[in-house]
Design a protein around this nucleic acid. Structure first.
Lengths: 114, 114
DNA sequence: TGGGTTACTTAGAAAAAGTAAGTGGGGTCG
DNA sequence: CGACCCCACTTACTTTTTCTAAGTAACCCA
């Protein structure tokens, strides 16, 4: 769609941006992905470190990230058994975007009501 | 939470990033926001330009963006009446993040199956 | 035994998103 | 006139997603 004189006709969003926004458009994906940015984390620590998330969705989102090749899952055979998740290079490469999102939010979103 | 020697204990995500990820974590918000980036658009053109979105959710997401001060809504009293949506300065300021997301997706997401 | 840990899994409820049709205001055409 | 079109929502209902709560199996300890 091309913008004609004076009209506000709208172009379809670029496929890459549309795809990543669809990815982020599932509840908790962005939060989990961003949290993994700090390095390898155990499932239980992720659960404790993300306020409001439930086991079920945490597991589901982690599986999705792993299936997309954005994270790896490593079973640590200790007592008790623990599972560690870590971003792959591809998953970690989104950092510049996260930095820009953080910058935008710091400037334009207000702190939550206390 | 502080990472102790050898442990993978996890820090809570920064509040700004958590907030913007929660915003983007609603289906269609990111797609609608990104689409408005190209300039003022009529509701009907938005609907035609975003494959897969329905009136109901499009309206709801636009209302949310307006309520958050990220977009404005202007009624154009023509024949037929039309409504135009446009990002505010705050809403438009997210562009650097969108550019980074696009860059990441171009490099790390594969094109959808044909 | 009861309590704790772990990473899921299951069952059902609640919320969100999707689908289809409608509303009220306008218009054109046969 | 009726039938169709446009517009921006709105309504009613269905389907999907997310949430809540409890459970599982494997371990540990007092």
């Amino acid at each position: 769609m091309v913008s004609s004189a004076g009209d506000n006709v709208c172009e379809t969003l670029s496929e890459p941006l549309s795809q990543v926004m669809t990815l982020l458009g599932k509840r908790w994906t962005g939060v989990v992905w961003s949290t993994l940015m700090q390095g390898p984390v155990y499932f239980s620590d992720l659960k404790r470190g993300i306020p409001g998330i439930n086991d079920r969705i945490l597991n589901e989102r982690l599986v999705e990230l792993v299936d997309l090749g954005l994270a790896t899952r490593t079973v640590i055979d200790g007592r008790p058994i623990r599972v560690r998740y870590e971003l792959t290079g591809r998953g970690a490469a989104i950092r510049p975007a996260l930095d820009e999102l953080t910058r935008w939010a710091q400037e334009h979103l207000q702190p939550p009501a206390r």
